[in-house]
Design a protein around this nucleic acid. Sequence first.
DNA 1: TTCGTTGTTCGTCGAATATCGAACAAGCTA
DNA 2: TAGCTTGTTCGATATTCGACGAACAACGAA
Lengths: 115, 115
Amino acid sequence: MRRANHPATEDVALPEVMGALSDPVRIGLVRVLADGSERGWGALRAPVAKSTLSHHLRVLRDAGVTRTRQEGTRCFVRLRREDLDTRFPGLIEAVLAAADADGVGNGVGLMPGAT
Amino acid sequence: MRRANHPATEDVALPEVMGALSDPVRIGLVRVLADGSERGWGALRAPVAKSTLSHHLRVLRDAGVTRTRQEGTRCFVRLRREDLDTRFPGLIEAVLAAADADGVGNGVGLMPGAT
DNA sequence: TTCGTTGTTCGTCGAATATCGAACAAGCTA
DNA sequence: TAGCTTGTTCGATATTCGACGAACAACGAA
């Protein structure tokens, strides 16, 4: 388990963020996190293998879209909503609204029973 | 010269648009077209080879971000601003604002003399 | 018809991406 | 300590992407 590489707020770059949000699975993950709550990875459900999910979460993290916190052997992820709003006002809001309207990433969700 | 493949407004998909806008050159092209004017390809200046520019313009076209009109042997390109605003309200505006602030795609511009 | 202009397509290259299963490492827990 | 859980990393593929030069096609002009 390697330490996560979180870019500083000012280092979050637009093309990387756009690229991170160009995949339906990753868009779905962002939608799940859109309410601001922190989620354990175990609570995330996506139609891909475990290693692939890990990869997608890493892309989001490296782009500065999410922040991962480690607690013992498990990880919690959260949307960097404030940082993103600071750097790119209105962007995440527009992407989330569009994704909701189109159902992009509907295959991604929470495990049954997660609040 | 093959006919351009423009997706209908309702077929413009979020992930494709995000992907199209994840490259600095393409973001720069969109910034150049942001004023709504139609530009001849010859008026566009970008730090890439002609064939690469053609490729980027095709990616934007296929994603539904721009519309290309052919007139004789030359082409004119324009941002599909209204269509994009209809499908994804606020998205282009946010991207343009962020790109302006960060100077993303500054290497792209108009040929000297273009209005 | 023969050029010249203009944009597309082709072939190619290296790099990046998406995906998987399997192996691994770090903490809990029994 | 031995096992279990959890997430990462490692290959291995297959695909796509960005880039280039060169060849090609369409059209207007000489």
